[in-house]
Design a protein around this nucleic acid. Structure first.
Lengths: 221, 221
DNA sequence: GATGCCACTTTGGTATCCCAAAACGGTATC
DNA sequence: GATACCGTTTTGGGATACCAAAGTGGCATC
């Protein structure tokens, strides 16, 4: 793997894993020494992460994107549009057996499963469901949206009740999709996305003080 | 403006204007000498254009993305999802007077207007309409989708009848939006997008031979 | 004439150097 | 103690040097 890909991957992982806090300043030289690469691949990685919305410009320098509650709300609307469209396509397929694979993903989580797994699979559910549509653009849109939501979702995953609820909703969506009931599946998906957004924004707004205390920049809605 | 932005802008313009043909090979050294910049800004520009889908990797090197009919069809589905969602938001606004500005854009085109203007305004109609929604993600999705469609649309703009039809459909969409009739506006928009896609793919499939003769790579649906 | 092979060239990936501008820090001044 | 000023350091943007690998062309061979 090229250095550029390596730096990009590791830096993304650190940002998404909150090892580098939202709002934190980044310098190309720090990344360079941290990962043992020269500035050329570092700059390439930063340019990519910028288009993903994970880092941004702060004047002349670089900053890890803050958690932005207004942005989270807009992403939910965006997700609703693209995920519902993808789900309609999937329900129109004659062979919808692939939903079983996604159901198996959900099943693989139990009480012994670490938080990181719940977090990842909660996102992959939506991403893989979108992939089934066969539309590359809808798929990428969902994947990119989930990436942007990833950091904020670390909070939701700490709430057992919210997690159980999300999994139940995921299963209901799959059940409707398996039957080919596009309208019902889409309705359930919309409710799920809007509900998740509300719970997420509410708990973030409540925890805002705590997040700030951890040095995380949080921008209000 | 930085060299990077300058190179990116000029290269994008050359690609979108078909001055560099779809499928053509690019070397960093050629771009470097063509625009009088060093490889650093050239590289940054290529990385950006790659995320826009205008250039891609061909093994180790760079290639101007070919015209891909299958991709055009998928983009239409994606556009339909995001543009309809944006239009619903716009129709829900209490102040929809901004649609008049968009109508004025359409009015500015007459028989004396050069093809380039029709082409640009035909895209801006959709982009600006999405911007009215106030949702940054829907807006960017539409803008990026139109960018990807831009090159293929050069063909449609040569067809007077198609142009007149598109403009009439644009006006009908605005009329429904002005009244706040979201469902009717969305229906008209869907019909417009699907119809445009069909006409575009059909004429591209027909002209495929001619395009190939001009050295343009065209990938079938 | 077709084909395999080798030397040379070109190319993207990387490291490093230079520069102007911005950020920082210390000091003198009020 | 606050503040304005100036020299130093740091930083991102750009240019260039170097390298390994892929590509190219010509020559020898069959």
């Amino acid at each position: 793997m090229s250095q550029m890909q390596s730096v990009e991957k590791q830096l993304r992982q650190m940002i998404l894993g909150l090892e580098i806090g939202p709002g934190e300043k980044l310098t190309e030289r720090w990344i360079e020494s941290r990962f043992g690469a020269s500035r050329t691949p570092v700059r390439a990685a930063l340019l990519r992460l910028e288009t993903e919305g994970l880092v941004g410009r702060d004047g002349r320098g670089w900053t890890v994107s803050p958690i932005n509650l207004a942005e989270l709300e807009q992403i939910a609307v965006y997700r609703e549009a693209v995920e519902v469209a993808a789900l309609h396509l999937t329900c129109a397929l004659t062979d919808r057996s692939a939903v079983d694979v996604i159901e198996a993903m959900l099943d693989s989580c139990d009480t012994d499963t670490p938080r990181e797994e719940w977090h990842r699979i909660g996102m992959d559910f939506h991403i893989e469901l979108a992939r089934l549509s066969g539309n590359e653009f809808l798929f990428r849109a969902v994947r990119d949206a989930m990436t942007r939501l990833s950091r904020a979702r670390w909070l939701e995953v700490r709430d057992e009740a919210a997690l159980a609820r999300a999994w139940a909703e995921h299963r209901a969506i799959l059940a409707a999709a398996r039957l080919g009931d596009a309208d019902e599946a889409a309705r359930l998906l919309s409710v799920h996305i809007v509900g998740s957004r509300d719970r997420l924004v509410t708990s973030l707004a409540n925890d805002r003080r705590g997040l700030r205390a951890r040095g995380f920049a949080v921008i209000a809605a």
